[in-house]
Design a protein around this nucleic acid. Structure first.
Lengths: 232, 232
DNA sequence: CCCACTTTGTGCGTAGTTTCACAAGCGCGT
DNA sequence: ACGCGCTTGTGAAACTACGCACAAAGTGGG
C-alpha cells in the first residue's frame, strides 16, 4: 500500500462538494426519469442551481466521468455519485421522538428515494408505545439497543423536545450509532468520531429575517422598528 | 446624528457569521433563563459549540459589546443580536402545504420563540380547507394573496410535494413575499432579490451516509459494497 | 497608585471555496 | 483523414472563512 498512482478517488472530497452531490443526484434522477441519456455540465448546473464551473470541479473530485464535446452520461453519473455517497448499500434509520415532527418524518416517503430504510420508531411516552405509525409499531426508548442491533441501525434521527435530545444522543452513541441527524434546537455534545448534523427550523427563519430586514433597510419602506437608541 | 463616524455596524456581516448568530442567541437565552448576568466568550463558545476566537470575531462584526476582563452582559447581548437579526419586529409567516410536515411546522412552538407568528395555513386540497390546525383554519391556496395582504405576511414556508413547490413559490413572489423557506426537495427558480433557503431531509441523510461510509472504509469492517470495477 | 490577572478585539498566516479562462479531448461532417 | 465546434477538466487568481496568538483594556487586591 505504498503509493496509489492511478487513483483519482483521492479520498479528499471537500465538504462543500459533498453537500452538493445529493443535489446533483436528484437533478440527474429527474433527467433519467425523463429519459435523458446525456447532459452537459451547463444543463445539469442549471437544473441544480449552481454555476457550471463549480459543478465540473465538484465532479472532477470523483474522477473523470465526462466526455469532452459531449457531456456526462446520466445513468453512469447517477451510479458514480450514488456510490460515492454510499447509497449503493442500504442504511437503516431509527427515529426517536414520535411527536408531530417524528410522525412527519416517518411518513415522509422521499427519504427512501433510495438507500434509506426507516427501521425503528421510538418514544419515551408510554402512551405512544405500541401505536402504529407509518406501518411501524412505536417502541419504547429503553428498547433502543435492541432495536439498533436487530435492525443494523447506523443512523439515528432525534426529533424529541430540546430537553431530551442530549440524553437520546448519549444513548445512540452508547449503542454504536455514529451518525446523528438532530432536529432538536440544542447543540449536542458527542465524542470525537460521531457525526452530527443539525436541522433547525427556527434558525432558518431567523436567517431569512436577517436578510429581509436588510432588504427593507435599503428600500424606502422601513419596517416599524428604527428606535436608534444609543446607550453608550 | 450627523455622520456616523463611530459606527461599527458595517453592514457587511459575513454570511457564515449570520448563520451562527441564532445559535449564540439561543445559548444566551438559556443563560438568561438560568439567571446568568455575564458570560465570557469562552463559556458562551462552549455552549454554542464553537471555538472562542470565532465567537469573538463574529460578535465583533456587530460592534464592540464586551468588556475586557469581564465578558459580555447577557441581556445586552441578547438585545443586540436580536436587533441585528431583525427579531425586534414581528414577522408573519404563511405555511403552504398542510400535510404531515406542514402540520408539524404549524404546531411547532419553538418557531415563535420570539418574533415569528404563523399567520396563515394554506393548502390546495379542498378536503383540507376549513380544517383547524394549530388553532388556525386552513385556507385554500387561491386565497394566498388575500392572506398575505391581510396578515402582512413576509415569509413563506413551502411544505408541499415537490411537484407543486415551484408553482407555490411563483405565487409567493407574485404577491410580494421575498423570503421563502422551502422544504420540498426541488431547486426553486426565483427572480433576483428573492431569498430562498432550503431544508432538505434526505440531503442531510445522504451527507451522513457519505461520512459513515468513509468511517467504515477506514475501519476493518467494510460494508458489503467494494466491487472495485474499473471500466476505464 | 500600581501590579497581577482576566478577557476582549484583531492582525495575520493558513486553509478552503468559488470563479475565470483556456488548453486538451472528443465527435461529426466533409 | 482532417478540421471545426463543442464541452470537459483544471491551473491560477480572487475571495471567504478559520484559528492562533497577542496587545489593549478592564478588574480587583494590596
Amino acid at each position: 500500500m505504498i503509493s496509489r498512482p492511478p487513483r483519482p478517488r483521492d479520498r479528499g472530497i471537500p465538504e462543500a462538494t459533498v453537500a452538493r452531490l445529493p443535489v446533483y443526484l436528484r437533478a440527474l434522477q429527474a433527467l433519467q426519469d425523463r429519459g435523458t441519456l446525456t447532459v452537459s455540465s451547463e444543463a445539469l448546473a442549471t437544473a441544480a442551481g449552481v454555476n457550471s464551473a463549480k459543478l465540473r470541479k465538484d465532479l472532477s473530485h470523483l474522477g473523470s466521468y465526462g466526455t469532452r464535446g459531449v457531456g456526462y452520461e446520466v445513468e453512469y453519473l447517477v451510479y458514480q455519485i450514488s456510490r460515492e455517497l454510499g447509497l449503493t448499500q442500504d442504511w437503516s434509520v431509527a427515529i426517536v421522538g414520535i411527536g408531530n415532527l417524528g410522525r412527519a418524518l416517518a411518513n415522509y416517503g422521499g427519504f427512501g428515494t433510495r438507500g434509506f430504510r426507516i427501521a425503528a420508531l421510538l418514544d419515551a411516552d408510554s402512551t405512544m408505545v405500541g401505536q402504529s405509525v407509518a406501518g411501524l409499531s412505536v417502541g419504547h426508548i429503553d428498547s433502543l439497543e435492541e432495536a439498533v442491533r436487530d435492525n443494523g441501525v447506523s443512523i439515528g434521527v432525534i426529533a424529541t423536545p430540546a430537553g431530551s435530545a442530549q440524553h437520546v444522543a448519549n444513548r445512540f452513541v452508547e449503542v454504536g450509532v455514529a451518525s446523528i441527524l438532530n432536529f432538536a434546537p440544542v447543540v449536542l455534545n458527542v465524542p470525537e468520531g460521531v457525526d452530527v448534523r443539525k436541522v433547525d427550523l427556527s434558525i432558518e427563519l431567523q436567517i431569512l429575517a436577517f436578510h429581509a430586514q436588510r432588504r427593507a433597510d435599503g428600500d424606502g419602506r422601513a419596517p416599524a422598528d428604527r428606535t436608534g437608541l444609543e446607550l453608550t
